[in-house]
Design a protein around this nucleic acid. Structure first.
Length: 283
DNA sequence: AGGGGTACCTGCGGGC
DNA sequence: TGCCCGCAGGTACCCC
């Protein structure tokens, strides 16, 4: 699922691919996922591609901005336009090689290229806003974990305010922005902390370890171009998968050996979500 | 106000 | 074989 490293990978690719291109046409195939008027961005040129938490934004020269949330199964695929549609060199999850596919909900036409928004589960969305409204989105979200503002002190302050399980807190976008299930599980393993622990009970030493672990796993996710595990939809705009799934520490590794102590990785349910950890070395 | 529960949606695995 | 049920999962929204 697209979390901070996946969305940032998409952003970096799209920034190069879309630079200076003019949007000539928008096909909205599933109206409920598109909010606002697509006509407001037609004829405008791409000015900037940005990310905040798991939200991706495309600023246009006319003062309008497209924002996307990929939720669980959203995909953005950028490919040269050969007329009616696009044939990819390799199949992508839930869409195959021919685009638009059944899961394609919006098609953005640029000079000689198309950007496809696909989403199997239809939880994701696209919205047209004024570029001056970007701040309203940012204000509702917590600290960016890969920014210099994300210090051990700030994390200590965040965890001190709630008794909820630490894993739930890591995934709370209003507190820390961009961490989802994959990186929450792996960061807690890296820090040696049990995901069920009450946030406010963490010691200063544990908070420091956790801060470093979050930065480490997110940076590693980014380095490998995100995570494209089995049954996950995420791919880069080119259609290529990421590589972090090969480096999962505990995520989706129930029953396997713990890479640190050799114990067995367990799965429990926390806040309705699959939670993976090693009882042997996460205390 | 923090926190718990539920809906949104589709494909798939398990059970019979 | 094939159908049906239940489940996964990020976030918004409702309610206590």
């Amino acid at each position: 699922m697209p979390e901070l490293p996946e969305v940032e990978t998409i952003r970096r690719d799209l920034e190069k691919q879309l630079a200076g291109l003019e949007l000539s046409r928008v096909d909205v195939l599933l109206p409920k996922i598109f909010q606002g008027d697509p006509k407001e961005v037609i004829g405008a040129k791409v000015k900037d591609v940005w990310r905040r938490a798991k939200i991706l934004g495309i600023d246009f020269g006319n003062g309008r901005t497209l924002i996307f949330h990929l939720k669980l199964t959203g995909q953005l695929v950028f490919a040269p336009d050969n007329g009616d549609g696009v044939t990819l060199g390799h199949p992508i999850p839930f869409a195959g090689t021919e685009l638009p596919a059944k899961t394609t909900h919006v098609v953005f036409h640029f000079d000689g290229h198309r950007l496809f928004f696909n989403d199997l589960r239809q939880f994701g969305w696209v919205k047209v806003i004024g570029s001056d409204q970007k701040g309203e989105i940012a204000d509702e979200l917590g600290v960016e974990p890969l920014s210099k503002e994300f210090t051990a002190e700030l994390l200590a302050e965040i965890v001190s305010k709630t008794k909820r399980p630490i894993k739930i807190v890591l995934m709370d976008q209003k507190k820390i922005a961009g961490i989802g299930n994959i990186y929450a599980n792996d960061a807690l393993f890296e820090a040696g902390i049990d995901p069920k622990r009450s946030a406010k009970e963490l010691t200063g030493e544990e908070t420091k370890r956790l801060r470093d672990a979050i930065v480490k796993v997110l940076s590693e996710g980014l380095k490998y171009g995100g995570s494209s595990a089995a049954d996950e939809a995420y791919i880069k705009p080119s259609g290529e998968p990421g590589g972090y799934q090969k480096r999962f520490r505990v995520y989706q590794r129930e029953g396997e050996k713990c890479p640190r102590c050799g114990g067995t990785i367990k799965r429990v349910n926390l806040g309705g979500r699959g939670t993976f950890f090693c009882p042997g070395c996460q205390k």
